[in-house]
């Protein structure tokens, strides 16, 4: 079943005539892992911004569970329905890793009784131990921050998980671990996982590989 649908989606930046995305049509379903590849500047991150509700399309529509996103509360959508793993992490740097996760759960209105325990378990799942979890994000390495970002994206159990270069700062062992988690989320937990990457090894995990070229999508599988 399609959880996210892009109907003739176009996008161009304010004050420019260049169209970044041209009439994109795409269905994203639960239980599948999508990998979007393409050259730099092809519009990969723009697609993620549109899907994550951080930006709005200049043409066409994006539907979440059949409802046009322009009609729904996008704050609510970001807080509950989607988990975003940013390339630049976008964590609260003065807060600890644990606090970042708990805050995300609070924003989503999570009913989890022991949020602290849940967050620690989640962090452990991505390879962050309790001691590291209590350190300020600013004092963590790039790889550790990336994993905290992944844990945060999973913390509120969203339907859709989107990731911009999720393994860019990770060693190969951790990359494999993270990709296995994302794979599991799609296959076992029936999440829709959308990844943007340059990495061929990440692309190998895809159920569906999508190539973005000159603002247009082409599905390869």
């Amino acid at each position: 079943m399609s959880v996210l649908t892009m109907n003739n989606v176009s996008y161009k930046y304010d004050g420019t005539t260049k169209t970044v995305l041209k009439n994109i049509n795409m269905d994203f379903e639960k239980g599948r892992l999508y990998v979007i590849v393409g050259k730099s500047g092809a519009g990969k991150s723009t697609i993620l911004s549109l899907i994550s509700g951080l930006d709005t399309a200049t043409g066409g529509s994006i539907c979440y569970n059949g409802t046009d996103m322009s009609t729904i509360d996008r704050d609510e959508y970001r807080a509950k329905s989607i988990g975003v793993i940013f390339q630049g992490y976008n964590l609260l740097t003065n807060a600890t890793a644990l606090e970042n996760i708990i805050l995300s759960m609070n924003i989503s209105g999570s009913k989890e009784k022991n949020k602290r325990r849940f967050a620690l378990d989640l962090l452990a799942r991505v390879g962050i131990d309790e001691e590291t979890a209590k350190r300020k994000v600013l004092k963590l390495s790039g790889g550790e921050q990336q994993r905290v970002g992944i844990a945060r994206a999973l913390s509120h159990n969203p339907d859709i998980i989107i990731a911009d270069e999720p393994t860019g700062n990770l060693d190969s062992d951790t990359e494999e671990n993270i990709m296995n988690i994302l794979r599991e989320l799609a296959t076992i937990y029936e999440k829709c996982v959308i990844i943007v990457t340059h990495s061929k090894s990440v692309a190998a995990y895809a159920d569906e590989l999508i190539v973005l070229n000159q603002g247009k999508l082409a599905s390869l599988s």
Partner: peptide, 12 residues
């Protein structure tokens, strides 16, 4: 930046 992160996380 902090405001941007909180807003991106869905805080109203």
């Amino acid at each position: 930046y902090e405001i941007g992160v909180l807003r991106a996380m869905g805080m109203k």
